[in-house]
Write a protein that binds this DNA or RNA. Structure first.
Length: 566
RNA sequence: UGUCUCAUGGUGUAAUGGUAGCACAGAGGUUUUUGGUACCUUUAGUCUGGGUUCGAAUCCUUGUGAGACAACCA
């Protein structure tokens, strides 16, 4: 009964995590509370894969009346920096989520974690190992062979305690000693073979300075931090599945009543034609294969934002791909669909000619300018209308004229008629061609004065409608045409080929001679538009009133391109 | 020669023992002053073998394939 009502409530069926949570609520596990956390490490920029996690962590809390904490997992002072903290917070807010006053850091718990380690030592569950990293690693065995016990495994509690305190006094150099949990060296799960839980790091931490000389490892910090914060559901990606027994082992030694957090793993987001690993993204930035973390070709949230993606489109995409335990490769076409779907509803339509070809309307009076009324968005009447100047000389798209057009070409060619969007029907009477280069330099048309939009004659059927910009009114603009960063679906799939080999050489084309309508004079960075018949574009932060710069977010679907390529 | 996880159209997902559905992509069409949008139609799927059952994508089992795990990273 309850099952049914819960399922029909939403517009889609529950995913497996929602099913788990609803069962827990029903069974009053953890008093029926739902409290999640998003735990980024402040060592890089967030990408769309993180967005999938953010939407789940914050989304579950929202859906079930719970809370979601933001917790920086800052247990490694060598790799982390405050620089990243701010960008991460900005990206989460931009995506549309709010952690309110619950901004935490694993480093907030260094004291409690240290005490817990001391407790484990006293109970015989942890020991100081004096061996080198290499030796410890060797003793760990392999996935198919058991490990062997360290000669230091049975040190006295007193000695362990003494050594551990002195490790934290800075008495020993980095690497000299570690603290290990005393679990099981023969466990088939490598993570249970006496994992290292504390190591000596002498570099200062970005938040705690030089207070500490020993720092907890991820496994010794994460579950415990969840516990300290009262987290109920610790949601993470599939590769942490093998860590779960250790997560539970620590929580079991920490908990004092029925409350306990537990970990559930879901599949990562992989996208075709890109890479998602922080290391690879860093490499692209460092080797200047892209222009920084916010390069519009990057799958980072700042990159997608600069490219013109909206938070709504990203959330909608994440909603569409779902959460399962199957390792998936998501088609970037679905992301593109999500942004088109969103922008179709909200983007103002404007006229921009990115590869200009001048048209002279020979029978149009010289010096005459007419103001044409054009709707701002046919999908949204409330967006209103605007006036656009029309004159004797206009720019049209080079692609909209062919000297010898094929049958299916609905645009302009010698003797053909087309409609100029919101203006007149014109007929091509001739063109000027550079005899040396073969380039069409100008085309000459006549217009039918009775076909101005709104006049009865304007209803005449013509095959095509072109966008245009009046020459004397046009604004110059730079347009950056972005395409997929890689030319293959899975740049990492072939182990014998460096992923850089698959970089798409045409992922960025800069067009500097573009002409846009005058209404674009006052645009601000991140403003969104549809360039009529071309695609969705936004204003790049590089843009100034003197030098307009637009990024192509995504092209419009182009059924002519399909016909043409047949 | 380990442990854990997974396997449904091209892709991502649903169906929780009872008509294999949805979205994207593909194909075709209608409408259209965007070759856009919207709408309609359509192609295409339960990894393999066995078992339980009136009935199996679902439960049991065999095999196959894929992934994760051997950082003093997270």
């Amino acid at each position: 009964m309850t099952d049914k009502s819960e399922k029909t409530e939403g517009s889609r069926p529950l995913n497996f995590i929602e099913e788990i949570v609803e069962r827990e609520i029903r069974d009053n596990i953890n008093n029926g509370r739902v409290h999640t956390r998003f735990p980024p490490e402040p060592n890089g920029y967030l990408h769309i894969g993180h967005a999938k996690a953010i939407c789940l962590d914050f989304g579950m809390a929202q859906k079930y009346g719970g809370k979601c904490n933001l917790r920086f997992d800052d247990t490694n002072p060598i790799k982390e920096d405050v620089e990243y903290v701010d960008s991460i917070k900005e990206d989460i807010k931009w995506l549309g989520f709010d952690w309110e006053d619950r901004e935490y850091y694993a480093s907030d718990y260094f004291g409690k974690l240290f005490e817990f380690a001391v407790k484990l030592i006293k109970e015989g569950f942890a020991y100081v190992d004096d061996q080198s990293a290499e030796v410890i690693s060797k003793q760990k065995g392999t996935p198919t062979e058991p490990g062997i016990e360290s000669p230091y495994r049975n040190r006295s509690v007193q000695e362990n305690l003494d050594l551990f305190y002195r490790m934290n006094e800075g008495e020993f150099p980095e690497g000299a000693r570690v603290l290990r949990a005393r679990v099981d060296m023969t466990s088939p799960n490598m993570h249970m073979r006496d994992p290292i839980i504390y190591r000596i790091i002498l570099s200062p931490h970005h938040r705690t300075g030089s207070t500490w000389k020993v720092y907890p490892m991820y496994d010794f910090a994460h579950g415990q931090s969840d516990y300290f914060e009262g987290i109920t559901n610790s949601l993470c990606t599939l590769e942490f599945e093998v860590h779960r027994p250790l997560y539970d082992w620590f929580v079991d030694h920490l908990k004092t009543d029925d409350y306990r957090p537990h970990q559930t793993e879901f599949n990562r987001l992989n996208l075709t034609y890109t890479v998602m690993s922080k290391r690879k993204l860093l490499q692209l930035v460092q080797e200047k294969r892209v222009n920084g973390w916010d390069d519009p070709r990057m799958p980072t949230l700042c990159g997608l934002r600069r490219r013109g993606f909206t938070p709504e489109s990203i959330r909608s995409f994440v909603e569409k791909i779902g959460y399962t335990k199957v390792e998936a490769l998501n088609d970037v076409a679905l992301l593109e669909h999500s942004i088109r779907e969103d922008l179709n509803k909200r983007a103002m339509r404007v006229s921009a000619v990115i590869n200009p070809l001048k048209m002279i309307i020979t029978n149009y009076p010289e010096g005459l300018v007419e103001e044409m009324t054009i709707e701002n968005n046919p999908e949204d009447i409330s967006a209103g209308e605007r006036l656009v100047s029309f004159s004797r000389e206009i720019y049209i798209e080079q692609d909209d004229f062919m000297e010898e057009p094929p049958a299916k070409f609905f645009r302009l060619g010698p003797g053909r008629e087309v409609r100029l969007k919101g203006a007149y029907i014109v007929k091509c009477e001739g063109f000027k061609k550079n005899e040396v280069t073969g380039v069409i330099e100008e085309i000459y048309c006549t217009y039918d004065a009775q076909t101005r939009s709104g006049m009865p004659e304007s209803n005449r059927k013509v095959k095509g409608t072109l966008h245009w910009v009046s020459v004397p009114h046009a604004l110059d603009a730079e347009v950056r045409i972005y395409d997929r960063l890689f030319s293959v679906e899975e740049p990492m799939a072939n182990k014998d080929v460096d992923f850089l080999e698959y970089l798409n050489p045409d992922s960025l084309k800069v067009l500097t001679n573009c002409k846009v309508e005058a209404s674009l004079a006052g645009v601000k960075p991140y403003d969104l538009f549809q360039f009529q018949r071309i695609g969705y574009f936004n204003v790049d932060p590089d843009s100034t009133p003197q030098h307009l710069v637009f990024n192509r977010t995504v092209s419009l679907k182009d059924s002519w391109a399909k016909v043409k390529n047949k």
